[in-house]
Amino acid sequence: MEVRTIKVFTTVDNINLHTQVVDMSMTYGQQFGPTYLDGADVTKIKPHNSHEGKTFYVLPNDDTLRVEAFEYYHTTDPSFLGRYMSALNHTKKWKYPQVNGLTSIKWADNNCYLATALLTLQQIELKFNPPALQDAYYRARAGEAANFCALILAYCNKTVGELGDVRETMSYLFQHANLDSCKRVLNVVCKTCGQQQTTLKGVEAVMYMGTLSYEQFKKGVQIPCTCGKQATKYLVQQESPFVMMSAPPAQYELKHGTFTCASEYTGNYQCGHYKHITSKETLYCIDGALLTKSSEYKGPITDVFYKENSYTTTIK
């Protein structure tokens, strides 16, 4: 009895394709271990004539594949690729409408935090270190965002349907971005203890939790000093293409032309909904596939993004 075979390709990165001759009487799992086709788990399936010449994702289970996976995804987590594939199996079914010149995501599976993050990423200057993220990001900007969303979920250790947080998501993504040249110098002034300067680099240099107003941050924000008295913390120097200011959701007025974009969060910790506000020729609110415009805006804002380049204080 002759062994019926077909020729397929296996890959971990969709760049390096490895030619395989597979036995049609055995499952993919018996031949390769966990195997995925377009995100779908085909591990328990036997090869079919229609699979001839198709590319299958496999887990990096030998040295060659491990090197290829690390170079593309910059992670050695053995569960990463499987999590990416199972997320992709959902995100490829989502709709990605162009809204006001940006790629958004039609609401499904509690994905409003991903839509808000995706919209924000198209408006701030950011370059990702893992080629996987950078490639998928370019495709997302062009309207094909399924891979990018699935990668975000995998890097953030999230599953489809789980509630997510924009600030946490951005923080994970910033860790995989090139923020080497970003720098922030802060000064804390206390009447009792004097003053202390701190220099922050990388992710810490672009994120701040405690106030939404970048102007206020430049002037000074009140913080408790270690001595128990009130101290003032203010920005001395900022070198970065953008800054992200966050605070627990509270009524906040966004003035046209003073910011790049913002995240609105309605609801409580267990259950809520994100919308995205962007400042173009007027203010726009993007909620999944829905767009509304207004000249002014007041609502429960939790993150505001500002364009920056270089700032030095005039406070002496």
Rank of each mutant, 00 (worst) to 15 (best):
T5K: 14
I6G: 06
K7R: 13
K7C: 12
D13W: 08
V21Q: 12
V22T: 09
M24P: 14
Q30D: 12
T35M: 14
T35R: 07
D41Y: 07
V42S: 07
I45A: 12
N61I: 10
L65E: 07
R66F: 14
V67Q: 13
V67Y: 10
A69C: 14
A69P: 03
F70D: 06
F70N: 07
Y72N: 07
H74T: 08
D77Y: 04
D77C: 12
P78F: 10
R83F: 03
A87D: 03
H90W: 09
W94Y: 01
P97C: 11
P97A: 13
P97D: 00
Q98V: 14
V99L: 12
S104I: 12
D109W: 02
C112L: 07
C112W: 01
T116M: 00
L118A: 07
T120Y: 05
L121P: 04
E125K: 07
E125Q: 14
E125H: 05
K127L: 06
F128I: 04
F128P: 08
P130F: 03
P131H: 03
G143L: 05
G143N: 04
A145E: 03
A146Y: 01
C149Q: 00
L151W: 05
L153C: 04
N157G: 12
T159H: 14
E162S: 06
G164I: 00
Q175N: 08
C182G: 03
L186R: 06
V188M: 08
V189C: 12
K191R: 12
K191W: 05
T198D: 06
K201P: 03
G210S: 02
Y214I: 10
K219L: 10
K219N: 10
T226S: 13
T226E: 12
G228D: 03
K229P: 02
V236I: 11
V236Y: 07
E239K: 10
S240R: 01
F242Y: 00
V243Q: 06
A247R: 09
P249C: 06
E253Q: 08
L254K: 03
H256K: 11
T260Q: 13
T260F: 07
S263P: 02
E264K: 01
Y269K: 15
Q270A: 09
I277Q: 14
K280I: 10
Y284N: 10
I286G: 04
S295E: 15
E296Y: 13
G299W: 00
I301M: 11
T302P: 01
F305N: 03
T313F: 15
T314W: 11
I315T: 15
